Computed example of a mutant assay.
Amino acid sequence: MLKDHAKLLALFQRAGEVVGRKKLQKIVYIAKKLNFPFNEKYQFHFYGPYSEEVTCRVEELCNFKFIEEVKEKKGGYFQYRYTLTPEGETFLSHHDVDMPALENVVSSMNGKSSRFLELVSTVLYFDELEKDEVKEKITTLKAKQRYTDDEIEEAYEYINLLTQLQTELHC
């Protein structure tokens, strides 16, 4: 029943700490697109792919005291920090979550900015389209972000890197 919760806990365990709700959403989405077994449904939202299910599960994990959410005031907005608690570690120890490559992939993504992960996840959201069509979508849907062609190219290169990290440990 709580298998999907355990998968999120495994992500927090491997990340150490995730700073930002948007970053968390993008990390889970990108991992899912890399064929990690996350089952949450996503739709395109203001900041790119978004899952209400991830939001609800994180809230439940906080209520269970399996993860800690720390709310910090940063300028004109609030930022959230998430870490696995000892209770979460105990819960996770009773579940077999087999995702050996997740640590390298999550560590890499966790070191990137939310803005960049928003771009990467948007590229992946439209992965059925040709590259020039994806660029057009990004410049239209993400006009306020003002992504450059170089940034979009960097996102494609980063997706290839993540794919390599994921497949290296599966071989």
Rank of each mutant, 00 (worst) to 15 (best):
N160A: 07
K74S: 14
G111V: 09
F46V: 05
K22A: 11
L165Q: 11
Q13T: 00
R81Q: 14
F78K: 03
N39W: 05
E87G: 04
L24H: 08
A101S: 15
T167F: 05
H95T: 02
F66Q: 07
Y147A: 02
L169E: 14
V19F: 05
Y50N: 03
I30G: 11
E154T: 11
G75P: 09
H170I: 09
P37T: 00
Y47L: 13
F78W: 09
E60L: 15
L9R: 10
Y47K: 05
G76L: 10
M99Y: 03
Y47F: 15
E52R: 07
G111L: 02
K65I: 08
C62L: 07
K32P: 02
K142S: 14
S51W: 03
I152C: 04
E52S: 10
E60Q: 11
G76Q: 09
D132H: 15
L34N: 12
Y125Q: 06
K74R: 15
I152W: 03
E151C: 08
M109I: 08
R21W: 02
E128L: 07
P86A: 11
V19N: 12
G48C: 05
G20N: 07
G20Q: 04
A15H: 02
E87I: 06
T140W: 06
H5V: 00
Q25R: 02
P49V: 01
E136L: 07
P100W: 05
G16L: 10
L117P: 04
D149S: 13
E59G: 11
S93N: 11
G20P: 04
A155N: 09
F36I: 08
L11Q: 11
L169P: 01
T122K: 02
E72I: 10
S93R: 07
D4E: 14
T139F: 12
E168R: 15
T167D: 12
F126I: 05
K41C: 08
R57I: 14
Q13A: 10
E151K: 07
V123D: 02
H170M: 12
D149H: 02
E157A: 08
V97N: 08
L165M: 15
I159C: 05
P49H: 03
T55K: 06
V19R: 12
K7Y: 10
L8R: 06
V105A: 08
G48H: 07
K3I: 13
S107R: 15
I159A: 05
D4Y: 06
A6V: 08
E87N: 12
L34G: 07
V134I: 15
H94P: 01
C171R: 14
E53P: 04
R81C: 09
G75K: 13
